[in-house]
Design a binder for these strands. Structure first.
Length: 273
DNA sequence: AACAGCTTCAACCGCATACCG
DNA sequence: CCGGTATGCGGTTGAAGCTGT
């Protein structure tokens, strides 16, 4: 366990000062990201490595977007949350400039509390929010089974793909009613690179561009005109219905077949407005 | 103006997984 | 294969600011 390290030896906690931010930023610029256990010593900070990492990832990293989420981003969060559940890092990976913490906080403040009001049995939350109870009319919400990606071992896969979006597929697993792994689903989503140098200004822009390119490919393949559709609409179409075992599964979906049911999202949109 | 209650979000905590010798 | 360590992630907390009375 690592956390005792943070608690021991009087390591500083709480809000970061400008001086600490300056030291950490300089350290990362000099040595690069990673090796977090070395960062406190290198930067001359009396902070634990986890605190340094979190501060960098959530606040100091370049090109982090602050402020309100755009409607398109909210739409994407809703759809991805429906697909992935509370996989905040995965969701954030598809929102350029947004951190997992941002997405999580946004969800908890804008959606979770509202869901807990309109469907408390599905979304329990410790504290009540009387104001919101008055503000929002009741809306029927159906529970959707989240398809949770399972860890996969790609150790035998060649790791020299320099174009991280050239493989459009993300393999996930679904669980059947007996909680047994039953199917592999290939979801066409751009995967953000891991472990590459992503500090350039192209970071978010590039993956988003690739996402759009992939959407265009799908569009061309299906010979459907999507002139006035938003990226998220295209993404929605891209991720549903799934391909199971590489084949069109539209006629053989099992008990977890709810890919085209985004009624909850629409209700949540109404809540926001 | 003062107070209480509520909301937001940065930061912390603990767990799971990856990595390495 | 095993054990220790590093890293990443999601849940939770709490201080600060905001809003209503």
């Amino acid at each position: 366990m690592n956390t005792p390290m943070c608690a021991s030896l009087g390591v500083r906690k709480g809000s970061w000062t400008e001086q600490e931010d300056f030291l950490l930023r300089n350290c990362i610029q000099k040595y690069g990201e990673g090796k977090w256990h070395l960062v406190p010593a290198r930067a001359g900070l009396n902070r634990c490595r986890k605190s340094c990492r979190l501060r960098w990832l959530n606040y100091l990293r370049p090109h982090i977007k602050r402020g309100d989420f755009a409607p398109d981003e909210v739409d994407l969060i809703l759809r991805l949350h429906k697909l992935l559940g509370n996989r905040w890092s995965l969701i954030a990976g598809r929102l350029p400039g947004r951190t997992a913490n941002d997405v999580k906080n946004y969800w908890n403040t804008h959606f979770h509390k509202k869901l807990s009001i309109i469907a408390p049995h599905l979304h329990p939350r410790p504290r009540s929010h009387p104001r919101l109870q008055i503000k929002h009319k009741s809306i029927a919400v159906t529970k959707n089974e989240i398809i949770r990606p399972q860890p996969r071992n790609f150790s035998n896969v060649k790791k020299n793909d320099s174009h991280w979006c050239n493989n459009k597929s993300m393999i996930t697993n679904t669980l059947d009613k007996d909680d047994k792994r039953c199917n592999e689903i290939v979801v066409n989503i751009c995967e953000k690179p891991i472990g590459e140098n992503t500090s350039s200004i192209d970071d978010g822009v590039e993956w988003w561009t690739n996402l759009l390119e992939n959407c265009i490919e799908i569009e061309e393949e299906t010979a459907i005109t999507n002139f006035e559709k938003t990226p998220t609409m295209l993404l929605h179409e891209e991720i549903s219905p799934p391909l199971i075992n590489g084949e069109d599964n539209s006629m053989q979906q099992g008990p977890t077949n709810n890919w085209d049911d985004f009624s909850t999202d629409i209700d949540l949109w109404n809540l926001l407005n």
